[in-house]
Amino acid sequence: MSRRTKLQLAASLIAQAFQAESGRVYSRPALTAMLKRYREAWQLPASVGLARFIQFLQDSKQLSVVRLSADTGEVVTRYVWEQASPQAVALTLRPSAYLSHGTAARLHGLTDQFAKVIYVNKEQSPKPPPRGALTQEAIDRAFKGQQRASTYVFHFDIYRAVLLSGKNTGALGVEDVPTPEGEFLPATNVERTLIDLTVRPNYAGGVEEVLGAFRRAHEQEKVDVAKLLQTLGQLNYVYPYHQALGFYMERAGFSEEALASLKALGLHHDFYLAYGLKGLVYDAGWRLHHPRGL
Rank of each mutant, 00 (worst) to 15 (best):
G109M: 09
A171P: 01
P126F: 08
Q113H: 11
I118R: 08
A90F: 05
A133P: 01
Y98C: 04
Y152K: 15
R94W: 05
T179P: 01
V162E: 04
G145D: 13
F114D: 00
H108R: 05
S100M: 04
V120W: 00
Y98R: 02
Y119F: 15
D112G: 13
F154N: 00
D157K: 15
L164P: 04
I118V: 13
V89L: 09
S150V: 04
G182A: 07
Q147A: 15
S96D: 15
I158Y: 12
L134D: 07
S100G: 07
V89C: 10
P129L: 15
E123F: 02
R94A: 14
S165C: 10
Q146S: 13
L99H: 08
L172A: 04
Q147G: 12
I139M: 10
D157C: 09
V120D: 00
A133Q: 14
G166W: 01
Q136G: 04
S125L: 15
V89G: 01
H108N: 05
L91R: 03
E137G: 12
P129W: 11
F114P: 00
D176I: 07
G182R: 11
A90P: 05
E123Q: 10
Q146E: 14
V117T: 14
P180L: 13
K122T: 07
H108S: 03
T169H: 09
I158G: 06
G102N: 05
Y98H: 12
L172D: 06
F156L: 04
Q113P: 01
R148V: 13
K144F: 12
G145Y: 10
V117Y: 10
Y152L: 15
G170H: 05
A105V: 05
V177M: 07
A133D: 13
T92F: 01
G166A: 02
R141M: 15
K144M: 13
H108K: 01
R94C: 06
P180M: 12
P178F: 11
Q136A: 05
E181H: 13
E175W: 09
V174Y: 01
P95G: 06
P95K: 14
L163E: 01
Y159N: 04
R160V: 00
T111W: 03
P180Y: 15
A149E: 12
S125Y: 14
R148I: 09
N168Y: 14
H155V: 04
H108F: 02
R141Y: 08
V174T: 05
D140L: 06
L172H: 06
Y119R: 02
S85Q: 09
V120S: 03
R106Y: 07
A104D: 09
S85C: 07
F156G: 01
S96H: 15
